[in-house]
């Protein structure tokens, strides 16, 4: 071990993260290395001072927090299940966005199982294929001139999951009515609070918190378990989505999380 290696070890010892063997190793080294002894003393001083930086909470904070939630209700954001790995020839962006884009779908949003949308794509030429019944896809234009498609929910109660759409990774029973992703047709499946990007990559079988989504091998976004998307803006720009900005998307995501309204936007590259 060189002195830099001992630097990492010093921090681990300071933080109580080192094993007794490592502590012994460091102490032996410090006996013979004055430079590291000085370094250890300085790092200790920094850590000690840092730990004295904690402040008392201002008295007003607690009441501000509690008054801030008055009249608000917790919301449940259905988690996404991507039923199949659908490869789309042209890179496309599927975004769950606020219902403002699709006011006519208010009835659709009110469905009991909270399924927001289903894009019935399958196969490599899915975008060019006509959507299969009973799912319908409508074209729309967003305010910034981009166009996209709204995929409506398949309302057929008799629809069965296709072989490749079975998803029991969480051990749940897909036939239960409280599962929002139950009884769907094949195709990828998008719900509230989630951005899904599909390109020359592979959609994961199940999207979950902090699971990155790739486009052309680059992480474009992931979302956290509070329903907030993390978007790599540069990745969007590099892939031709220059009209999208991080905060527009993030705000939209938060809005839909709060209102439980969503639509699916597919922006073709």
């Amino acid at each position: 071990m060189n002195c830099e290696d001992y630097g990492v070890l010093m921090n681990m010892v300071i933080d109580g993260e080192a094993s007794p063997e490592d502590e012994w190793l460091l102490s032996e080294h410090l006996k013979v290395c004055r430079a590291c002894r000085d370094e250890y003393a300085r790092l200790n001083a920094v850590a000690l001072q840092m730990r004295q930086m904690q402040e008392d909470v201002p008295e007003c904070l607690h009441s501000r927090i509690m008054s801030g939630i008055k009249g608000k209700k917790p919301v449940r954001i259905p988690m996404i299940r991507v039923k199949t790995i659908a490869m789309v020839a042209a890179a496309c962006l599927v975004i769950a966005a606020a219902g403002v884009f699709m006011p006519s779908m208010s009835n659709f949003f009110a469905t009991k199982d909270d399924v927001f949308a289903e894009a019935n794509y399958s196969g490599s030429n899915a975008v060019d294929s006509a959507p299969q019944s009973p799912t319908s896809i409508e074209k729309y234009y967003a305010a910034d001139g981009d166009y996209g498609y709204i995929a409506e929910k398949n309302n057929s109660d008799n629809a069965q999951p296709s072989d490749d759409s079975a998803d029991s990774s969480d051990g749940s029973d897909p036939s239960k009515p409280d599962k929002v992703d139950s009884a769907t047709t094949s195709g990828h499946f998008v719900q509230s609070g989630v951005y899904v990007l599909e390109g020359n990559g592979v959609l994961p079988a199940q999207l979950d918190a902090y699971q990155p989504v790739y486009l052309n091998g680059e992480v474009v976004f992931c979302f956290d378990d509070a329903g907030q998307a993390k978007i790599a803006y540069s990745a969007l720009v590099d892939n031709g989505f220059s009209k999208l900005s991080e905060y527009q998307l993030s705000d939209e995501c938060m809005k839909l999380a709060g209102q439980c309204q969503t639509a699916v936007i597919v922006i073709l590259k």
Binding site: I65, I69, K72, V75, R76, I77, D225, A226, G227, A257
Partner: peptide, 9 residues
């Protein structure tokens, strides 16, 4: 506020 609202998740 977010904790409160998203706690069901």
């Amino acid at each position: 506020l977010r904790v409160y609202r998203f706690l069901p998740n």
